[in-house]
């Protein structure tokens, strides 16, 4: 009986390495991210307006209630404006990050490029991480824009500890990645509607100490606030931005965010992988 031998086929993928990683980061951030996003000019304008308007809304509310310039003990001595400016800047940063991967998957489904991206030798998990880079940068820009408005127009006084701000921002982004993966898995499966991002966006504004301190909440539900990393992130960022707090002084908050990331990212990746296999079984990767 004749036995057929397998013809060894060469791989078309070039070797990887740090330069290949940087190149892919550039391709996803600049070409796929910035060039596509900035080609929709109306969207660019409306997005910037969307960043800034809530700051003025809450400023006017604060003025109306007479709390604008006051220093409140529950706010650790910082003014209410400074409190909500930091809250809004970084709550927007995190809630956009949580919804962003899902949005990216949805847009690739609509454009028909999702199958082509998943057909390449780049691992789907890596594709998701590269895809999130542009969103991180864009949302960071929104946080900076809100802070600039706060400092330049609303008189927020900064007492900056840069290492604390940098480390807290990175950990806040990383600790949101697990939820972002869960939201991406959800949209890959259901195609429309993203309850994870929607719930996170509304839920955190209320519970995470964005517009008022967690201490104001009834004691019986304060644990909810401390089950989400944004609460700890905002504590650390307010300390680093408004009170010159050192890394050591915010170490417990940073530790919690790191722990949250270590637990939720593998869970998010596993869930995404499971959903990807399910859509591959159903043949619905590219349907929308």
């Amino acid at each position: 009986m004749a036995v057929e031998t397998v013809h060894p086929l060469p791989s078309a993928a070039r070797p990887g390495g740090p330069r290949a990683i940087l190149r892919k980061a550039y391709l996803f951030t600049y070409l796929r991210g910035w060039l596509v996003w900035s080609s929709y000019r109306a969207q660019v304008g409306l997005t910037i307006v969307g960043w800034i308007v809530p700051v003025f809304v809450f400023f006017l509310v604060a003025v109306f209630l007479g709390a604008a310039g006051s220093s409140i003990s529950a706010l650790d001595g910082s003014s209410y404006i400074a409190f909500f400016v930091v809250g809004l800047a970084f709550q927007g940063f995190v809630s956009n990050l949580v919804g962003m991967l899902a949005q990216r998957i949805r847009s690739e489904q609509m454009m028909g490029t999702l199958e082509l991206v998943f057909l390449s030798p780049t691992n789907p998990g890596a594709v998701l991480i590269y895809s999130s880079l542009f969103g991180v940068l864009l949302n960071l820009l929104s946080a900076v824009a809100i802070m600039v408005v706060g400092v330049g127009l609303l008189g927020v006084q900064l007492s900056l500890n840069l290492p604390t701000v940098i480390v807290a921002t990175i950990l806040l982004a990383v600790s949101s990645t697990g939820l972002s993966l869960v939201a991406a898995a959800f949209i890959l499966w259901t195609k429309q509607g993203n309850p994870v991002a929607l719930f996170f966006s509304t839920f955190t504004q209320f519970f995470a100490g964005v517009l008022f301190p967690v201490a104001v909440l009834p004691a019986s539900i304060q644990w909810l606030a401390y089950s989400i990393p944004l609460t700890f992130g905002l504590d650390a960022l307010r300390a680093g931005l408004l009170a010159g707090g050192s890394l050591v002084s915010v170490a417990p908050s940073l530790g919690y965010m790191a722990l949250y990331a270590v637990i939720t990212i593998p869970m998010g990746l596993l869930l995404f992988r499971w959903v990807l296999n399910r859509t591959k079984d159903e043949g619905t990767i590219a349907t929308y």
Binding site: A12, A13, R14, P15, G16, A20, R23, K24, L27, L31, R32, L35, V36, S39, Y40, M111, G112, T113, L116, V117, S120, P121, T122
Partner: peptide, 26 residues
């Protein structure tokens, strides 16, 4: 046979750079 296999807002060259970059091509 689908025309929806590239990014509409990018040029042909930018699309090639992106997709070939996924194979680590310089």
């Amino acid at each position: 046979n689908s025309e929806r296999s590239f990014y509409y807002r990018l040029s042909g060259w930018e699309n090639l750079r992106f997709f070939c970059g996924l194979y680590n091509m310089h």
